[in-house]
Nucleic acid binder design. Structure first.
Lengths: 119, 119
DNA sequence: CCGAATCCCATCGGATACTG
DNA sequence: CAGTATCCGATGGGATTCGG
């Protein structure tokens, strides 16, 4: 069971509390590009260009922003491989692989239920 | 297992495909207010003001937008109860309760792992 | 009073071009 | 190849106002 500000032991761990860091974290994960990027990296390390190709329609700026934010909170590790041409790999951390599970469930639910949805 | 454009039987059911309706649906669900609103409605029908209080920091305009979009795709049912003062109840549909599960997993993961995350 | 439409502004996302 | 810079349209929040 998740702790909440109201009922749990962690008074500041409630995604519904505006000032709780959980909310900022949920904002980061509950974001279309984050959900797709993390899913893409479940297969293993991915290069910037690979991610850009998989995440159809993402602009380089937004992909960079997304990956940098995921890196900042420790969900993704960025590795620069000095070579010509330059290689940069993005990989899920242990924590990132944990976050990937509920996100995969969400993506799969959408794919499995899209026919039942209107719009 | 979820079907994908590339590997599955449903050629148009891939959240990674830019033109797939799945992507639009994921964009709707992978949104900070949608995830919180759907979670709030898991307890049962909620009035507009209740939702506004639970989703700390949401403006009435954005809450209306969010609920309307969820209603359009059939995840939420909106019921106007003619009374003074006016009652408007929002309730998850069967489909909405299905979508609620992975979203709850995501919220719980965040609450359970926030201490391990940086930022 | 509650729900929601309107106006205005700040911020963000997206397309494109360009650089290390 | 992997980003950064720049511009622009879309989106989101706040305050206010309207309607029931």
């Amino acid at each position: 069971m998740a702790a909440t500000c109201v009922t749990g032991k962690h008074d500041q761990h409630d995604v519904y509390a505006a000032q709780c860091p959980c909310r900022a974290m949920l904002d980061l994960l509950a974001n279309k590009w984050s959900a797709l990027a993390i899913g893409a990296m479940e297969r293993g390390p991915q290069r910037f260009g690979e991610l850009r190709r998989v995440l159809q329609g993402v602009s380089p700026k937004v992909l960079t922003q997304t990956l940098r934010r995921l890196e900042e909170v420790g969900l993704v590790e960025r590795t620069v491989i000095p070579a010509v041409p330059l290689h940069v790999e993005y990989e899920l951390t242990e924590l990132g692989r944990g976050a990937a599970r509920p996100l995969r469930s969400l993506r799969e639910w959408v794919e499995d239920n899209i026919d039942a949805l209107e719009g």
